[in-house]
Amino acid sequence: MIEIQDIHKKFGDNEVLKGISSVFKPGVNNLIIGGSGSGKTTLLKCIVGLHEPSEGDVLFNGENFTDMGFEQRVPIRTHIGMLFQNSALFDSMTVEENIMFPLNLFTSQSKAEKRDRANFCLERVNLAGKNKLFPSELSGGMKKRVGIARAISMQPKYLFVDEPNSGLDPVTSILIDDLISELTVEYNMTTVVVTHDMNSVMGIGDHILFLHQGKKWWEGSNKEIAHTDNKELNEFVFASRFMRAAKAKL
């Protein structure tokens, strides 16, 4: 479980996050949504420690991550998997080497065991046999899936995903969403997904945090989101013609 308490983040005079608190539970898909510039990615980076919050705390299973130094964070970090917006695969390594990279650094497994784990992860994301390809030889959707395979290689307790569907076609987006959702349940992970894709929201949004102007504007599930009277949230949710048409039919 991850708990964020009154997170503020300032860049100079610009306050991007203004006191956000929430609890992200394991085994469910926690989504952070909001328009561009609402602070979603900044919040995610504060949670994983890529940004230090100006104020507030992030607790991983009750342990205050914000107060920890680099060395103290390492044991928690080895339980974190993250899929980046552009996948962030290491260009100089093959698919297999990318997946085995955290295993090489943080486990004492034999080469055969690491290779077995890499193969298992690749099979899990339907990319069996692509071990020797380089990231430059993969499509956008395949890169995302390799990113997921690398993220789950250490069997993490926490999975963070930044804009999983950006640049992907709707069919591939659904595949990625479903994969994230299945893995969340399978590993009982605390999954936090940053997105502005309404397909993801409606498809896998078990717990949704809507940010607006750096504040928590609304919190609920995908079952509640279409029936809320929150003006800004409605504007966001029904911004697309597809969603407006769907609402009109309801």
Partner: peptide, 15 residues
């Protein structure tokens, strides 16, 4: 390039 493509962030996240 590793910095702007978030590969360094990926390293840091892994610990």
């Amino acid at each position: 390039t590793m910095r702007v493509t978030e590969q360094i962030d990926a390293l840091e996240i892994m610990g």
